[in-house]
């Protein structure tokens, strides 16, 4: 009986939930600005539609451009196998948290190279920003993981984010949680770091990097990005309340809540100027570092 629920539930979280979260964010933003907005399943529909389409490849680009989407999606999927959704993850061992971070970095590495392969200055611009901002986000994420690892005694996501014998100071959770939220917004190109919905390629980060991808390639990229948002969302929810996340139903609810929360953030503020973004990310590093100091004391 357990496995009978387990497998469909995991499939639900991996396949339906990521596009649904994005749909909810869009819906929230539409609601706040007084519009009706697209249906919540629009992102899922977009992906399915893109999978059925052909592709246009730039004459400038070579095999790295084709390699980018498939490697980055595979890396995110393997990262998903390390994250505890509502039960234990597929693979778990001491040190998998580092692998998680580096798999996301691998995805970024190939996406950047694919962007540079088109020879377009817009995509170069996006790649440059992505590389710059992620090199601040990465230390923040590692420090957050380190403070969690001190308490669980292991660098395994399953043990760091599980409910067993937690004596984690509330202040530490608060600091790590706010740091992780900033990293989550930055890594998934949300406002205030990036605005995926602007009309101007000049102002975007992640979206402008993938301007030239089309058809199934673009579907892979969109799905990978949505999955990454959901994975980090799961980690954030588990950080705040591990026992709550152990139930698939409650986890779904809280992920939807997180999506609405992100939508509310996006509706309530503008994107930061690019010069200000490093400051926000350094603030995340500082929050994480203070969290670590508190965790040790």
């Amino acid at each position: 009986m357990e496995t009978l629920i387990f497998i469909p539930a995991v499939l639900f979280f991996l396949l339906i939930m990521p596009p649904l979260m994005l749909g909810l964010i869009a819906k929230t933003k539409a609601f706040v600005s007084g519009r009706r907005g697209p249906p919540v399943f629009q992102p899922l529909h977009d992906i399915l539609k893109l999978l059925g389409k052909g592709a246009v490849y730039s004459e400038t680009s070579g095999w790295i451009f084709r390699l980018g989407p498939v490697i980055s999606l595979s890396a995110v999927l393997m990262a998903a196998s390390l994250v505890p959704l509502f039960g234990a993850p597929l693979i778990s061992f001491n040190g998998d948290a580092i692998l998680f971070i580096y798999l996301l970095a691998l995805g970024r590495f190939v996406t950047i190279l694919a962007a540079l392969d088109t020879g377009s200055s817009f995509e170069g611009m996006g790649a440059s920003r992505e590389a710059a901002f992620s090199s601040y986000a990465e230390p923040a994420l590692i420090l957050i993981f380190a403070s969690l690892a001190i308490h669980s005694g292991s660098l395994s996501l399953n043990r760091m984010f599980s409910s067993g014998q937690r004596v984690f100071p509330a202040a530490s959770v608060l600091l790590a949680g706010s740091g992780l939220l900033i990293v989550l917004l930055a890594e998934n190109s949300r406002i205030p770091i990036d605005d995926p919905n602007t009309h101007l390629e000049l102002t975007m980060i992640h979206e402008v990097m993938v301007l030239d991808h089309s058809g199934p390639d673009f579907a892979f990229i969109l799905y990978g990005a949505q999955l990454k948002l959901m994975l980090m969302g799961v980690l954030w929810i588990r950080l705040l309340s591990p026992s709550w996340a152990a139930n698939p139903f409650f986890l779904t609810l809280s992920l939807c809540g997180l999506a609405i929360f992100i939508g509310a953030i996006e509706s309530s503020m503008a994107r930061l100027r690019l010069i200000r973004v490093p400051q926000l990310l350094i603030a995340a590093v500082c929050l994480a570092a203070f969290g670590l100091i508190l965790a040790v004391r």
Partner: peptide
């Protein structure tokens, strides 16, 4: 991907 786009792949200039 190669199965999905078989025949529907074009070359173009960078956007």
């Amino acid at each position: 991907r190669s199965r999905l786009i078989s025949g529907f792949s074009q070359k173009g200039a960078t956007w």
